[in-house]
Design a binder for these strands. Structure first.
Lengths: 163, 163
DNA sequence: CTCCGTGCAAAAGGTTTGCACTGGT
DNA sequence: ACCAGTGCAAACCTTTTGCACGGAG
């Protein structure tokens, strides 16, 4: 069995463990959605995941995909990725700069650091991409969110409002 | 006059120059929206910009804010920032990793690079943030977009479909 | 004077919510 | 058997589009 397969099984096992730990049921929908995530090498949208599973789970609804993926993020087995997308945000600063992002409330602020900016561009030739620039996203807790229980996970987490 | 004020004037001048160069009118709406962008230290949403200007420009519509900010990005005087937001995307990979993002079609793929990951966390104490992790976004052209005229700006640019 | 930009309203996505029912544990 | 998860439909919110008018060059 290949390394990749083993990795896949291990991740599924981690999901099952987390579900048991949190006393939440491991439904066929959750398993299928998680496997669909693992089987893609890109960062699918809700709709892409839905397309991937709707044949295996006839009658499944998009709503379930929304809720399930949100659950996975809470469980720590999946991530939401930063992406230029709907609910656009704009920045008048076009100079090279970096960002601080709060993992709890999603606040985003600019961060200038000459040391970071001196970072040499890595060799990405094997990917076929032609890299022009880069920016670093520093992830952590903003001053406001540090005040609240920083270990809060899922529960007592404020409804994300995209501050 | 302070350094900041000078910077502000300089940026407004750059916008005026770009508008003249591209033969597009410099309307009161465009000026107000650009000033609103410059006056904020964060990354406002469309709606936040709208709230900022609606008193100064009575009767202005959200539609104008949408179109104007898009114009600014084309002119190169503003940027759209990557942000965890609506049109969610998910990643089954929770390990530390980086991203390649195509500035033309917004394609996003994972990129692993041990050298990048050894980067020491910068000192962000002055910001009040408590940094836990970071990830690097490498910006450039994906293999597909490299094929098309890479210098295309605005014109002949495909409608963004969030591939 | 000529266009392009703007405002309005409607349409087009994407996401969230309430409720009754089903299915894991 | 119990309670959380699911499916459906409607509500909600953000973004896009078509059209007629008005203002910048």
């Amino acid at each position: 069995m290949s390394k990749v397969k083993l990795d896949r099984q291990e991740k599924i096992g981690r999901l099952e463990a987390k579900c048991r730990e949190r006393r939440i049921p491991m439904t066929v929908q959750r398993r299928a959605i998680f496997e669909a995530l693992l089987d893609r090498q890109d960062h699918p949208t809700i709709d892409q995941v839905y397309e991937d599973i709707k044949d295996r789970i006839p009658g499944v609804s998009r709503t379930t995909v929304y809720r399930t993926l949100e659950t996975f993020v809470d469980l720590g087995v999946s991530r939401k990725t930063s992406h230029v997308a709907a609910m656009a945000r704009f920045d008048g600063n076009v100079e090279h700069h970096h960002h601080l992002v709060c993992v709890r409330c999603d606040k985003l602020v600019d961060f200038d650091d000459p040391a970071l900016s001196r970072l040499p561009l890595p060799d990405a030739r094997r990917t076929g991409f032609e890299i022009k620039d880069f920016s670093v996203y520093l992830e952590g807790l903003c001053p406001d969110c540090k005040k609240f229980a920083p270990k809060a996970r899922g529960a007592n987490r404020p409804r994300k409002k995209l501050i």
